[in-house]
């Protein structure tokens, strides 16, 4: 359907920091390379610097002195956003309320003084791509949130931008619509092969969309890597806690076994001196007490339909979270045996 010659853009940040006029440090000097055609998700809680980084790349904010933004190796730090040719999609949609859907989509081409028939053809193409043809002549206030974000995407892509920058594009939508549009955006980005940077605080979105995820915290890049790596080998406690659910149990690694108050877990590769083992809920199975590594008592059990989420108290720390199949009931206070897959064990 799309016949654009795709020439994806490689983006690099070099020592890009941001200090605001009032002295607050929004971003510590940061180096980052984004490969051509890659989708990188900036993930983190609000105020972590992810939007600031995006705005520096877009050209909406200047980095502090010494910071440089490179597009395909060319320094664009001094270029304002209107010369960078990047598409932007905002959480608030930011559509022009005084224009129709078609006028919104064609705006970038009108600014570029494209010929009328060329604009009309491109607008039709974008309407088709986002499957919103019937909305062409609607006013913006007649659209639902999901429709508005589709128009915003079409508007950003109509000018064939060098990269697509999305700032929490799905946050304002309700859960069901969010899932549907996420799928659509994922499919769109892959089909276009465009370099995309996606800012979100939602880890499920980040996992689903990112070729790489950059987890940010307090103006610093905590970790950057493919979703699997971020999930399986978190580099810091912050990443471990922010992404998914993480269980912790304290003990001592001794001769290939991690010994805790609630039992011992075989762990051959335990780094020397480890005093805390981390593992994900899905790496724990409920077993007979005879085969169990750990024993604990159930403090809560939530039936989720396809599975049951158990909270099991094994020591004085926070209860362990265990995902188990939903075929049996668990009583409050019941003692259960837990077996941990050694491949899922991590130390920090």
């Amino acid at each position: 359907m799309m016949t654009d010659p795709v020439q994806p853009l490689a983006i690099a940040l070099s020592r890009c920091g941001k200090t605001f006029a009032d002295g607050t440090r929004a971003l510590e000097p940061l180096d980052l390379e984004i490969k051509a055609g890659e989708t990188v998700v900036f993930l983190g809680p609000s105020g972590c610097g992810k939007t600031t980084t995006l705005r520096i790349i877009a050209g909406l904010e200047d980095p502090d002195a010494g910071g440089r933004v490179l597009f395909d190796g060319v320094d664009v730090t001094a270029q304002p956003i209107e010369q960078r040719n990047v598409g932007m999609v905002f959480q608030s949609y930011a559509l022009f309320p005084n224009m129709t859907v078609a006028e919104n989509i064609g705006y970038g081409l009108r600014v570029r003084r494209a010929k009328k028939p060329a604009i009309a053809a491109r607008v039709d193409e974008m309407l088709g791509m986002m499957r919103i043809e019937p909305l062409a002549d609607r006013r913006i206030d007649q659209l639902s949130g999901g429709q508005r974000q589709r128009v915003a995407l079409a508007r950003a892509l109509a000018v064939r931008p060098r990269a697509l920058l999305l700032d929490e594009p799905l946050t304002a939508l309700d859960a069901k619509l969010r899932d549907a549009l996420r799928l659509e955006i994922d499919e769109l980005l892959r089909r276009l092969g465009i370099t995309a940077i996606y800012v979100t605080h939602d880890q499920a979105e980040a996992m689903a969309l990112g070729d790489r995820i950059a987890v940010m915290d307090h103006g610093k890049m905590a970790q950057i890597g493919p979703p699997r790596e971020i999930y399986r080998r978190p580099a810091t406690r912050f990443v471990a806690d922010f992404i998914g659910t993480m269980n912790r149990i304290s003990g001592v690694a001794r001769g290939g076994v991690f010994v805790t108050d609630a039992g011992a877990v075989p762990w051959l590769e335990a780094p020397p001196g480890t005093t805390e083992a981390l593992f994900r809920p899905e790496d724990v199975t409920v077993v007979d007490e005879g085969q169990a590594h750990l024993k604990g008592s159930v403090v809560a059990a939530f039936f989720l339909g396809d599975r049951t989420r158990l909270f099991v108290k094994v020591d004085a720390n926070k209860p362990l979270v265990v995902e188990t199949d939903a075929r049996r009931d668990y009583a409050h206070g019941e003692t259960v045996g837990l077996r941990i897959d050694p491949r899922g064990l991590m130390a920090l």
């Binding site: 209107e82 932007m88 559509l95 705006y107 970038g108 600014v111 950003a156």
Partner: peptide, 20 residues
């Protein structure tokens, strides 16, 4: 954000004034 969207689409300062 609407002004920023217009600029990202290539609009000059004057176009932002007149269009947004």
């Amino acid at each position: 954000r609407i002004e920023e969207a217009a600029r990202s689409l290539g609009a000059s300062t004057w176009r932002v004034v007149f269009d947004v």
